[in-house]
Amino acid sequence: MQPEAHAKAALEVAVLVSIGRHPLTGRARRADQDARGVELAMSLDKARITLMHAGALDDDSESALRGYLGMGFQTLTLVEQPRDADVIPALASALSETKPQLVISGERAEQGEGSGLLPYLLAERLGWPVVSGLASVEKVEDGVATLLQALPRGQRRRLQVRLPAIVTVDAAASAARQSAYGPARRGELRCTEALAVPDEASSEWTVQPARKRPKRLKIVKAASARDRFKAAAAKAEGGGGQVLTDVTPEQGAEAIFKLLKEEGVLR
């Protein structure tokens, strides 16, 4: 994936990477979903990939960013921003300068607010379409990308989107390759200056480690003791289920067929 080798490549891809946080140790690391995004970009045919990060540069973030370089890149564009800055204007101007065809990002950050709004705000600012939750990119032809979107329950949906576009990666996308130490050390972080816009609203928030959410209690609304007892002692029962007895197999099958059709599980 050396940029020189792909100088004539048709597709310019920018991957927005962020600094992740290890769920147990809390250390900075390469973010899982962003790494999947890089992996998705690397799976594309004839793509010229730029890695881009907006944020501050210090020891922690450098080691995390080098994790992406270790996946086989020589440079990473770092748009320098202070810690409490709103990175959208800086990223938007950086993207409108480099003019990539496809921008790939993770779904949400592992640090900070982690609202997952960044791709949407960028898309709104740049006027590009945004598609969320990708499992893979099938092909890119004539400025139209065919994408596979991951649905819940292991389902997939095929979409077509006109480029340039911003896409976000789902956890169902293929896992990221290992980061190699040598290339990670050798890689270069190319810093660029950008105007910093402070994020004022977030300074009014109080942030604490996540509390365990209270478990919802089963509330039994019963008028009489008998109802309360019944609710406490009840076994799982559907109640009001339809029972077909003495029917021919065809009639039974038809009833089931109708239910399956109604639920829309038959294709």
Binding site: A236, E237, V243, P249, G252
Partner: peptide
């Protein structure tokens, strides 16, 4: 009792139908 729709009969023939 749990089912929303229950069909009493031979499963093989119902599935075949």
């Amino acid at each position: 009792k749990r089912a929303d729709l229950a069909v009493i009969g031979d499963s093989a023939s119902i599935l075949a139908a």
